[in-house]
Computed example of a mutant assay.
Amino acid sequence: MNSLGIDKRPADTRVVVAMSGGVDSSVTAALLHEQGYEVIGITLQLYDHGMALQKKGACCAGQDIYDARQVCDRLGIPHYVLDYESAFREAVIDDFADAYLRGETPIPCVRCNQRVKFRDLLQTARDLGGEVLATGHYVQRAMGPAGPELRRAVDPNRDQSYFLFATTGEQLDYLRFPLGGMEKPAVRALAQRFGLEVADKPDSQDICFVPTGRYGDVVQKLRPGAVEAGEIVHVDGTVLGRHDGVIHYTVGQRKGLGIGGRVESTDALYVVRIEPEAHRVVVGPREALAKPGVTLTEVNWLAAPDAGGIPVLVKLRSAMAPVPALVRATPAGASVSFDDPQYGVSPGQACVFYDRDSGERVLGGGWILREEQALAA
């Protein structure tokens, strides 16, 4: 059994590596090549980089494709570039724009992994005769009693398990994550040892196709005429001002509300909810953000729950510390009850479940619904 869990010699094991042009995927390819595997690099062109990006720290655009090719040339391995621009636009970019118009806060990186990289790319790797598909994600795959399990990375500052909650058990059978047990400084040191030109390249940004971090500009470009102005309303019904579109707001937001000097109270105000049908942004005090639980849709279970629910730890945002909760499966997805109320829960974000004992194993996750959607589910 080789290091990838395949009952073959490394030289007889073909590994396809997803290469974004960054340091992590480049080191992944170099490590596997050094270990004697037959490595093939694949890079996806996901968008028109002239339209979306001309900045450092982006993946799957022109410079990054060139960087991936340079790494493969140095290693002496084949490299293929596949045009997935149309699939990426439909599955990720269009979904991103429509989610903001629905008053949600989307996570396009999850959709990219779910609908492009771990679906279409995985199938391409199989077509190329790959025994496995390896990526540079910071997450661990471990064999458990019922098969492969998804676990948090060793480096808590780099862990990407939140973004991979939609990975299915079948996909985990085929995927490998060689960097999950390493810390980022060690990865950069390896890049230096391998002589890779990307060793000092900046890390990729979370949303690769947003040029400046101004999400609203991208939505307006993709959906011209769909963004409408409306009222900013206090939870008590008082109209406090107007906005240029709900796409510029997210639940829990405190700054940049556009109502400075129009509120008698000195208490800070937060976006409590967004009502896209009425083009209304509702604000209120922090206590109005408290939620006892959430309802989820499109739930991916990596461990089947008991009929009465299972106690877990959940993350509602990628950077938050996990909090205790009880999750129950429902016909439409799942319901989650927090042990303590949570603040700033944003529809469109993911709620990811981890085992209660260690907090390391990913048990599943789903997408948070708006309250009116939850009632209809």
Rank of each mutant, 00 (worst) to 15 (best):
S346I: 05
R69W: 03
G103I: 06
I40D: 01
A325M: 09
A268C: 05
Q192C: 04
R214H: 15
G348R: 04
V272R: 09
F118W: 03
Q205P: 00
L44R: 00
P148Y: 05
L82S: 05
L53P: 00
L375M: 11
G256R: 08
D67N: 13
C72D: 03
K117N: 04
R254W: 04
E231D: 14
R317S: 13
R286Q: 14
A87P: 00
M143R: 13
T238M: 13
D64G: 08
L289V: 09
P276C: 10
H234R: 14
S3P: 00
G348V: 12
L289D: 07
G62P: 02
V233D: 06
L53V: 15
C72I: 04
E149F: 02
R102A: 15
E149W: 09
A99M: 06
F96D: 02
P347K: 06
L4G: 07
V39W: 08
S3N: 04
G308M: 02
T28W: 07
I232F: 07
L46A: 11
D159V: 04
A325K: 10
V299C: 10
C109W: 03
D355Q: 12
F177H: 09
V233H: 10
V246E: 02
D7E: 14
Q114E: 14
L172Q: 04
F209R: 03
E183C: 13
P78D: 11
A325L: 11
R176L: 07
P341V: 11
L326F: 05
V336R: 01
D200F: 10
H137Y: 12
T238L: 13
